[in-house]
Simulated assay, not measured.
Amino acid sequence: MAKYERIIFWSEEDGRWIVDVPELPGCMADGATAAEALENVEKIIDEWIETATQLGRKIPEPKGRLMYA
């Protein structure tokens, strides 16, 4: 499991739970439940890293919560 910070919140607009991974720009997932959204984001993180690697982009080192505090 990648050690990137995950921010989970309820979206009234979407009627779903959203998980944002701020250290990976544009990396987000959703789900009908908070657990489902967290499960879905694991796959999206892997895909984000795989795509960035294929494109020769730098993969950010996980810095965690203190980066945004």
Score class of each variant (00 low, 15 high):
residue 1 M to Y: 12
residue 1 M to H: 10
residue 3 K to W: 07
residue 3 K to T: 13
residue 4 Y to K: 06
residue 4 Y to D: 04
residue 5 E to Q: 09
residue 5 E to R: 09
residue 6 R to P: 06
residue 7 I to K: 15
residue 9 F to G: 11
residue 9 F to K: 10
residue 9 F to L: 09
residue 10 W to P: 03
residue 10 W to F: 06
residue 12 E to C: 05
residue 15 G to A: 01
residue 16 R to M: 13
residue 16 R to K: 10
residue 16 R to I: 07
residue 17 W to G: 04
residue 17 W to A: 00
residue 17 W to L: 00
residue 19 V to L: 03
residue 20 D to S: 09
residue 21 V to I: 09
residue 21 V to L: 09
residue 21 V to K: 04
residue 22 P to Q: 04
residue 23 E to G: 04
residue 24 L to F: 01
residue 24 L to I: 03
residue 25 P to Y: 01
residue 26 G to R: 01
residue 27 C to S: 02
residue 27 C to W: 00
residue 27 C to T: 01
residue 28 M to T: 09
residue 28 M to E: 07
residue 28 M to H: 10
residue 28 M to G: 04
residue 30 D to L: 07
residue 30 D to Q: 13
residue 30 D to R: 09
residue 31 G to C: 00
residue 31 G to S: 03
residue 33 T to A: 02
residue 33 T to V: 05
residue 34 A to W: 05
residue 34 A to T: 05
residue 35 A to Q: 15
residue 35 A to P: 10
residue 35 A to F: 09
residue 37 A to E: 05
residue 38 L to Q: 14
residue 38 L to Y: 06
residue 39 E to C: 06
residue 39 E to N: 11
residue 39 E to K: 10
residue 41 V to Q: 03
residue 42 E to I: 13
residue 44 I to G: 07
residue 44 I to C: 05
residue 46 D to E: 15
residue 46 D to Q: 14
residue 48 W to F: 08
residue 49 I to C: 05
residue 49 I to D: 00
residue 50 E to Q: 12
residue 50 E to L: 11
residue 51 T to H: 08
residue 51 T to Y: 09
residue 52 A to H: 07
residue 54 Q to T: 07
residue 55 L to D: 15
residue 56 G to C: 05
residue 56 G to S: 02
residue 57 R to P: 06
residue 58 K to S: 13
residue 58 K to Y: 10
residue 59 I to V: 15
residue 63 K to V: 13
residue 63 K to G: 11
residue 63 K to W: 08
residue 63 K to I: 12
residue 64 G to R: 13
residue 65 R to T: 13
residue 66 L to S: 15
residue 66 L to M: 14
residue 67 M to F: 15
residue 68 Y to G: 02
residue 68 Y to W: 15
residue 69 A to P: 10
residue 69 A to M: 14
